[in-house]
Nucleic acid binder design. Structure first.
Length: 943
RNA sequence: GGGCGAAUAGCUCAGUUGGUUAGAGCGCCUGCCUUACACGCAGGAAGUCGGGGGUUCGAGUCCCUCUUCGCCCACCA
């Protein structure tokens, strides 16, 4: 059997199907040590994409990072579970469906709640889950049998349980206050959902005429000037506030001013909230339309008239009769602002307008400027939940990579604010609260795990709260609910909770990641994971964030079609530096993804060489090869493999913390472990370098002759090649699973029905052959491996010289290794490896104790041997002399500096002995080289 | 406004507790269709380690300062 010329990317889906058929991605709870099995569990819960989402590069990045970890864990013989699923995505999905019915000229209110929810369910049933299918195309190895959905009955049960428990524990309450309101989505938002954007607006200075009590004022002041960015809210002003310590206005406290336009009198009050240093030191108080003013209003028992309605339109209600003039009634707040400013200007009340830079909150789903709105909402008291989450990070039970985010996490938790969890939407989990109309007092609140049809107390009719819960109130339970909580005996919960790693972009650190930690501690007593891995985001060549609106995105499915999933994965993983964003050029997919495709092809071609030239006959296991039969190149590649495995292990770091700890989490990260591992780009680079620069460039080239010739020695080379390549495929499988699986199944060592996806991760152990032969052989092998480095060095030096003197590739020339008594071992290496050197460099190498006469190029090899290539008629003497003189001058300069350093007593006495020794050896080598160069210049250039 | 991080080759980044002549990938230049691979092979050029000051025998690495970017948070109306 042999491989086709190219790896067929169209065959990736067939490989995926084979994995599915074999159940490679399925986890068994009973195999977990926590459930009586014999394997450590390793679990990741996938950040659930919105159920209506289409795969974009952000998902790709996130899931590929997880897949690399999951495949590594699986190969490391962990009972590996990756839980996939989707999020019902309250606002987002509702918005999508609203847009859909808007095309039919309808609003959700035309349909009514039940019909709208049914319509949304139908839409989700029809289009939902597309993204999960797309994830398969990029090789995501999740356990699809456990696919979860936040709005499923099972997860809804968890949501209700969480709400009821928190309520029973007094951590959920109904609050009347000013919250963030999106006038487009018609719902309240949490602090996190109202995002700040810096904007340049205007700061309007408005004069309020002093009307009452002014005669007590000492000055001649007639008016107070305030500054505001939102003049339209002045219609709801109920006071002006000054700081009680502010001398300028002390005598005005208690006086009244006239509110412009409306001509109503409002008091001047004293409150700490007014900052004497800002503006004029006077601030207008609008309790219903500003969160701070609300607090001031509450402190002073002020009225709270509302002049802007839910749609962001100027309107009166019972609280604000007479406060919205015809001028602006029915106008959008933006229009109203213009009109109010004009009216103020006309009446002379507008003192001045200045440009003002400030941060304005926007709805995170639709980007509308949010409106502070007075309303009743359900809140979660967060401080008690935050405490264990903080302690978990501080004790080392949790780590966040990159670690700079740990400070951000701590800061947020230390300043945590209560969480508004009610949303005035129809798509989501209905709040499990029922109000009784008949009870005394009326509207008594009943919170229940089951739907209520009658009041539990008076058996009267009840009405369920109209609102739904924040989407994140279901997703913050994800690691628990997907594993079966609240059933504490659930098999999966016992076997796989706590999970291990949470992978995400940093933008949902507070929305989701931190809240999951809080719910994990609260409901299960343990952090849901020990590692949070935050990767960067995808940006284009100009470093702009990829986004739909900019149209600068890369469609992962396009990339899969054009270059294959492995090429996509390779590019993303190798660009995934810890803490850095990943840059991709959407206008040049070839440039961006060719390196991945090229690497896949390189792997494929090594496979082709192996199968074409080494054949598919059963191969001798490496452990049956006598260590004495190993050539220097064999020993070398085996030691390079060991190094590569060690590097890859370092790149991943430890699977989990194991150091015992006190507190709720039994183990913790040590300081040394805490920042280690999760360097997936290092993994890619280490594996690539091994395969390409060492295995392909040197080992395969070195053994070609032996393998093609066959025989006993050919079989030794073949055994080593198969062993090393097999291990390399294992190291690379987490990154490029498709091509490695396809090659691996054709290796002579492959057993029908086995998969690389569930094969063992290579151990950093010395190769099996050495263990059998003992430490002595291992030592010999290390020495022989080192000798191959001399061969590589000689080949490199000769190539360099040939290139420098433009010796035609086909022309065979000679080289002489000049050795003396001290370098006899090296002489033996060159004598024995002369054929190899000649094949790799097209240059015959012989050993001599004297340099040949005449023009020649020199190279100094480690060990002190000098390599001399007679140039005969190849050299341009003038050019060579110029080069030699340049080299000599550079060397002299460095030599003098080093000599001075070594004659510095402080250096010799204070620097570590090995450093000093190293410098001395270097000086000796330079000395020899200098002499050599001087001799060369003498013989060649003095004419 | 508060806090955090970054600045090293044209680009993207490594550089462990200060210690050989600062590295890699991509790009660039030169030569090669050498019996797996031109999606390849071999060789090469290229950096005052953001500026300034300090500590030290020795600083890309430690300290101070300035500049420029980035991120998180925040009720200065």
């Amino acid at each position: 059997m042999s491989l086709p010329d190219r790896f067929d990317i169209a065959g990736e889906s067939r490989i995926y199907e084979r994995w599915l058929d074999a159940g490679c991605f399925h986890a068994e709870a009973r195999r977990s040590v926590r459930a009586g099995g014999d394997r450590e569990p390793f679990t990741i819960v996938m950040p659930p994409p919105n159920v209506t989402a289409i795969l974009h590069l952000g998902h790709g990045l996130d899931n590929i990072a997880q897949d690399v970890l999951i495949r590594w864990a699986r190969m490391s013989r962990q009972e590996t579970l990756w839980v996939p699923g989707t999020d019902h995505a309250g606002i987002a999905t509702q918005n999508v469906v609203e847009k859909l019915i808007a095309k039919e000229g309808k609003t959700r209110f035309d349909l009514g709640r039940d019909a709208f929810v049914r319509r949304t369910e139908a839409f989700v049933a029809e289009t939902g889950g597309t993204i999960l299918r797309q994830l398969r195309a990029i090789g995501v190895s999740a356990d699809w049998s456990r696919t979860a959905y936040t709005l499923s009955p099972a997860l809804s049960r968890a949501v209700r349980e969480a709400f009821v428990r928190l309520h029973q524990d007094g951590l959920i309450y109904r609050g009347h206050r000013v919250i963030h309101w999106c006038p487009r989505c018609l719902t309240s938002l949490s602090d996190e959902e109202a995002e700040f954007h810096d904007e340049t607006g205007a700061l309007y200075h408005i004069a309020y005429r002093i009307s009452g009590g002014a005669d007590r004022a000492s000055g001649t002041r007639r008016a107070l000037t305030i500054a505001t960015t939102r003049p339209e809210t002045m219609l709801a002003d109920v006071a002006l506030a000054v700081n009680p310590a502010d001398e300028r206005y002390r005598d005005l406290v208690g006086a009244t001013v006239v509110l412009p336009i409306l001509d109503i009198e409002i008091p001047i009050i004293a409150d700490e909230y007014a900052d004497p240093a800002f503006g004029t030191g006077v601030v207008k108080i609008t309790p219903a339309h500003d969160a701070n003013d609300f607090e001031v209003g509450r402190r002073h028992g002020l009225a709270m008239p509302v002049v802007i309605d839910a749609n962001g339109v100027m309107a009166e209600d019972a609280s604000s009769t007479g406060r919205v003039p015809d001028l602006v009634r029915g106008d959008d707040r933006v229009v109203a602002r213009r009109k109010i400013v004009q009216a103020l200007q006309d009446s002379g009340a507008l003192v001045t307008t200045e440009s003002h830079q400030h941060a304005v909150r926007h709805c995170y789903r639709c980007d509308t400027v949010v409106e502070p709105r007075l309303s009743d909402q359900w809140f979660v008291t967060m401080a008690p939940l935050a405490a264990p989450a903080l302690a978990g990070l501080r004790s080392g039970a949790i780590r966040i990579l990159p670690q700079k985010w740990e400070g951000v996490y701590v800061h947020w938790l230390e300043n945590i604010r209560d969480w508004n969890i009610s949303r005035q939407l129809w798509w989501g989990h209905r709040i499990p609260v029922w109000y009784c109309k008949e009870c005394d007092p009326p509207y008594d609140v009943h919170v229940s795990r089951t739907d209520l049809t009658a009041c539990p107390r008076c058996d009267g009719p009840v009405r369920q709260d109209e609102d739904v819960l924040d989407t994140w109130f279901s997703s913050w339970l994800w690691p628990l609910s997907t594993l079966g909580w609240p059933d504490e005996k659930a098999e999966d919960l016992r076997a796989f909770y706590p999970t291990d790693v949470l992978v995400s972009a940093p933008d949902i650190l507070f929305f989701w990641i931190t809240r999951m930690i809080m719910s994990g501690y609260y409901f299960a007593g343990r952090s849901p994971y020990h590692t949070v891995l935050l990767h960067g985001i995808a940006r284009d060549a100009e470093h702009r964030k990829m986004s739909k609106s900019l149209g600068n995105g890369v469609d992962p499915i396009d990339v899969v079609r054009l270059y294959g999933a492995d090429a996509l994965r390779w590019t993303l993983v190798s660009g995934m530096g810890l803490g850095s964003d990943i840059l991709l050029d959407p206008n040049d997919l070839e440039k961006t993804f060719a390196p991945g495709r090229n690497f896949v092809t390189k792997l494929w071609n090594i496979g082709r060489f192996l199968l074409d030239k080494a054949g598919t006959a059963p191969v001798t296991p490496l452990r049956n090869i006598d260590a004495n039969q190993l050539h220097r190149s064999d020993a070398w590649i085996l030691s390079r493999l060991d190094a590569a495995v060690a590097e890859c292990d370092d790149a991943f770091g430890p699977l989990r913390p194991v150091t015992p700890a006190s507190g709720p989490d039994p183990v913790r990260w040590t300081d040394a472990e805490r920042g280690s591992g999760m360097r997936l780009n290092d993994l890619a680079e280490s594996a690539r370098r091994f395969v390409w620069s060492e295995l392909a460039d040197w080992y395969v080239e070195a053994i070609k002759g032996r393998v093609i010739e066959g025989g006993a020695d050919g079989e030794v080379a073949r055994a080593v090649l198969v062993h090393v390549f097999d291990a390399a495929l294992r190291l690379l499988h987490p990154i490029v699973p498709f091509v490695t699986e396809e090659i691996w199944r054709q290796l002579p060592t492959h057993t029908e029905g086995t998969f690389l996806a569930s094969a063992a991760w290579p151990t950093g152990d010395r190769a099996a052959g050495d263990r059998a032969a003992g430490d002595r052989a291992a030592g010999d092998r290390a020495a022989r491996a080192h000798e191959f480095d001399l061969v590589r060095e000689a080949v490199g030096a000769v190539r360099q010289i040939r290139s420098e003197y433009a010796v035609p590739p086909g022309k065979h020339i000679d080289a002489v290794a000049v050795v003396n008594g001290a370098t006899r071992d090296i002489a033996r290496v060159f004598t024995e490896e002369a054929d190899l050197v000649e094949r790799l460099s097209r240059t015959a190498l012989r050993v001599s104790d004297a340099a040949p006469q005449g023009a020649a190029a020199h190279a100094v090899l480690s060990g002190g041997t000098s390599l001399v290539v007679p140039l005969a008629d190849l050299v341009d003497v003038d050019k060579e002399c110029a080069r030699l003189r340049g080299e000599l001058a550079a060397l002299e300069k460095q030599y003098v500096a080093l000599e001075a350093r070594l004659s510095n007593e402080k250096f010799v006495s204070k620097a570590p002995p090995d450093v000093v020794d190293g410098e001395r050896r270097k000086l000796a080598a330079w000395s020899a080289r200098r002499q050599q160069l001087r001799d060369k210049v003498q013989t060649l250039c003095v004419s």
